[in-house]
Amino acid sequence: MAIRKKSNKNPPVLSHEFVVQNHADIVSCMAMVFLLGLMFEVTAKAAVVFVTLQYNVTIPATETESTETITLYHYGIKDLATVFFYMLVAIIIHAIIQEYVLDKINRKMHFSKTKHSKFNESGQLSAFYLFSCVWGTSILVSENYISDPTSLWRDYPHTAMPFQMKFFYISQLAYWFHAFPELYFQKTKKEDIPRQLVYIGLYLFHITGAYLLNLTHLGLVLLVLHYFVEFLFHISRLFYFSDEKYQKGFSVWAVLFVLGRLLTLILSVLTVGFGLARAEDQTLDFSTGNFNVLPIRISVLASICLTQAFMMWKFINFQLRRWREHSSPPPPVKKKFVTAKGKPSRKERENGINGTLTSNGADSPRSRKEKSS
Results as ranks from 00 to 15, higher is better:
N8Y: 06
N8P: 07
P11Q: 13
S15P: 07
H16W: 13
H16C: 13
H23W: 11
A24L: 06
I26E: 05
F34A: 09
L35R: 08
A47L: 08
I59C: 01
T62L: 03
T69L: 09
T71N: 03
Y73P: 14
H74Y: 02
K78H: 13
V83Y: 05
L88V: 00
V89G: 14
I91Q: 13
I93R: 04
H94E: 08
D103F: 05
K104G: 04
K108C: 10
H110C: 09
H110P: 03
H110E: 10
S126P: 12
L130D: 08
V134D: 02
L140W: 02
E143L: 05
T150Q: 12
L152A: 06
W153P: 12
Y156S: 10
P157V: 11
M161P: 12
P162N: 09
K166S: 14
F167A: 03
Q172Y: 00
A174Q: 01
Y175N: 15
Y175G: 14
H178L: 04
F180S: 09
F180E: 11
E182F: 03
L183G: 11
Y184I: 06
Q186T: 04
D192N: 01
Q196P: 07
V198S: 02
G201I: 07
Y203F: 13
G209I: 00
L213K: 10
N214L: 00
T216G: 10
T216S: 13
H217M: 12
H226W: 09
V229D: 11
F233E: 14
H234C: 15
R237C: 13
F241R: 01
K248Y: 00
L256E: 03
L265F: 12
I266F: 15
S268G: 15
L270E: 12
G273Q: 01
L276E: 05
R278E: 15
A279I: 06
T283L: 07
D285H: 07
L294R: 09
A302P: 06
M311E: 08
K314G: 14
K314H: 14
F315G: 01
I316N: 03
Q319S: 11
W323F: 14
W323N: 06
H326C: 08
P332F: 08
V333N: 12
V338L: 11
T339E: 11
G342S: 11
E350N: 05
N354S: 08
S359I: 08
N360D: 13
R366K: 12
S367E: 12
